[in-house]
């Protein structure tokens, strides 16, 4: 094995940061696996909970907003329309809240062993990705139930998932590092996510947003993600507002860039203040 030289110099960051991150990919895998394995230990339904939680939310939304409030469904079955929004939203919401707590929850490891700290938030988000994959089964079932044939655009679903991932990652880096110093974020995040559930176009279609506020509305990256999901699954029935999508994608990239740079700046102090 070629000898690796490690230089630690005060005030300077290691030059091999990204290479280090790559070389610890197996750790990422095992940390993710660990959390998946332990989460459903001693539960009766086990991993089925991953699908159950979104399913229950979809049922509530369908009954309350579809059947009782009669919100417009743009021609597609209301349950499918809600499902297309709940799945990415729950992915984002779980990813962000888990990522935010990931450093604090792993403080025991953090203070004893070195590896790139970014592993923790990334691993937290990977877990949500697994949950998301499982809960995609609900979408398939709903489509079978309603005899709904998706358009070819469903192949573009991963693109919009990537936007949600990017946003969760960027915001996760940012809040996880803030959480190390200010544990208040443990309480702020659930509240913000609750708020997001109502301002994102989940129970309704974004077509109800007035024209002049449209661009502003897409400052919330999840609005673009959810619209994209709907468009991809439902096909042309749901019109895609291109400037809005571009806005959401742009914002999510900005969030990622800011998140990474902030994280790297404060990363070295985590151990001293956690």
């Amino acid at each position: 094995m070629s000898k690796k030289r490690i230089v630690i110099e005060s005030g300077k960051e290691s030059g091999a940061y990204w290479r280090d991150l790559w070389s610890y990919r197996e750790l990422l895998y095992y940390l993710t696996l660990r959390d998946i394995l332990i989460r459903y230990k001693q539960t009766f339904l086990g991993i089925a909970w991953s699908a159950f939680r979104p399913l229950l939310t979809i049922m509530v939304f369908t009954v309350v907003f579809g059947k009782i409030a009669h919100l417009p469904d743009n021609g597609a079955p209301y349950a499918i329309m809600v499902c297309c929004a709940i799945l990415p939203w729950q992915f984002f919401s779980n990813a962000l809240s888990d990522a935010s707590n990931s450093l604090v929850n792993n403080s025991e490891i953090l203070t004893k062993v070195y590896f790139p700290r970014m592993i923790f938030p990334i691993s937290a988000i990977s877990i949500s990705l697994v949950d998301f994959a499982i809960s995609l089964g609900i979408l398939c079932l709903l489509m079978l139930f309603y005899g709904f044939v998706p358009a070819w655009t469903i192949l573009l679903l991963p693109l919009f998932l990537a936007v949600a991932f990017t946003t969760a990652l960027g915001a996760g880096f940012f809040i996880a590092s803030l959480n190390v110093r200010f544990r208040d974020f443990k309480f702020i995040i659930p509240f913000l996510l609750q708020l997001g559930l109502f301002i994102s176009p989940i129970g309704f279609s974004s077509s109800v947003v007035p024209e002049k506020w449209k661009l502003v509305y897409y400052l919330n990256p999840m609005a673009g993600v959810i619209d994209g999901f709907r468009w991809a699954v439902l096909g042309n029935d749901a019109k895609l507002f291109i400037p809005g999508i571009c806005m959401s994608v742009g914002i999510s990239l900005i969030i990622l860039a800011l998140g990474i740079s902030f994280f790297r700046k404060v990363e070295r102090e985590f151990v001293d203040i956690i």
Binding site: R5, I6, V7, S10, Y114, V271
Partner: peptide, 23 residues
């Protein structure tokens, strides 16, 4: 500091090879 868990306030350390620490 040698395990790279804590970052030094000043100074410089050079190490050759793979490090494992059992703190």
């Amino acid at each position: 500091i040698l395990s790279r868990v804590v970052h030094p306030t000043e100074g410089r350390i050079t190490m050759e090879g793979k490090i494992a620490s059992l703190l």
